[in-house]
Design a binder for these strands. Structure first.
Lengths: 146, 146
DNA sequence: ATGTCTGCAAAAGCTTTGCAAGTAC
DNA sequence: GTACTTGCAAAGCTTTTGCAGACAT
């Protein structure tokens, strides 16, 4: 993702273009693996040794408010952030603490139709998010990244 | 839930029967609405003004380890606990911060069959948990309980 | 009697906040 | 020039930990 694309994302939301914001956004698109605020800071450290953790939280909050990223909660962990804003599901790897996004329109359709038919009393569904929990069985995903 | 039933749950796991553990367990079955540690402490206050918050965390952890309760994570919130140990899904009310359990065997079957057919490469699924996010449309569920 | 549990308080870890200085527009 | 943003440090909040005394078995 080049500089112009990144700044456009900010400008489109009327956000001021600061080097810190651009750098954080770049890292988010680079990592893509649901980093925590602390992981963002570490990744940024070579480029931006001076950036404050408070500023990173601040920027991530701003991005959330402006629909650039989403928060993702995991079990017994801290907050992680996700640049993927399309509706999607999550695969939780118990053996490597990895969270992967799972896109599947067929599944979305299946769920939508199921609840259109079945319904929940006094409740208007806005969205679904399926958590798929299990074990990775290959080697390339064994990296611990807690 | 009477005293004997509560103590049996503890005894079955080889846990010592202490008044604090029984009281916490009783409250969990009484509330059933995914309380936080702090909410448990408040609910317990009339019966047990002296119980320490550290002890509550301690007890809740022990219960988790022994399969009596589960942790539930919510977006931008603290940990909540759930006595419902059967596989189930969660309904998140955006307008009242309520989390309800949703049991649906038909849905479980649907998901199981879908992924049996479709599969995820290099991944062995252990369980599913669907988050159903939306708004309650009636009045009786409007109580804020954050 | 012994090993476990509780209460208390302090500490830890993630996140938020306040404010002065700096920066984007 | 003005309003917003950053850096820094302190504070806040939930959760964990250490230890002495108490309790269940």
């Amino acid at each position: 993702m080049n500089y112009n694309k990144l700044t456009k994302i900010l400008a489109d939301r009327g956000l001021k273009i600061t080097p810190q914001r651009v750098a954080v956004l770049e890292v988010l698109y680079e990592i893509r693996n649901h980093p925590s605020a602390e992981e963002v800071r570490q990744k940024l450290h070579s480029k931006y040794p001076s950036i404050a953790i408070g500023t990173i939280y601040n920027i991530l909050d701003t991005f959330c408010e402006n629909g650039i990223i989403k928060k993702v909660k995991t079990d017994s962990d801290f907050v992680r952030y996700d640049v993927d804003m399309e509706n999607h599901h999550h695969i939780y790897g118990l053996n490597n603490n990895l969270i992967q996004n799972y896109h599947d329109e067929e599944l979305d359709k299946l769920l939508k139709e199921y609840f259109a038919k079945k319904g929940i009393p006094n409740f208007q569904i806005k969205e679904f998010s399926l958590q798929i929990i299990g074990q990775y069985t290959n080697d390339q995903n064994q990296t611990k990244q807690k």
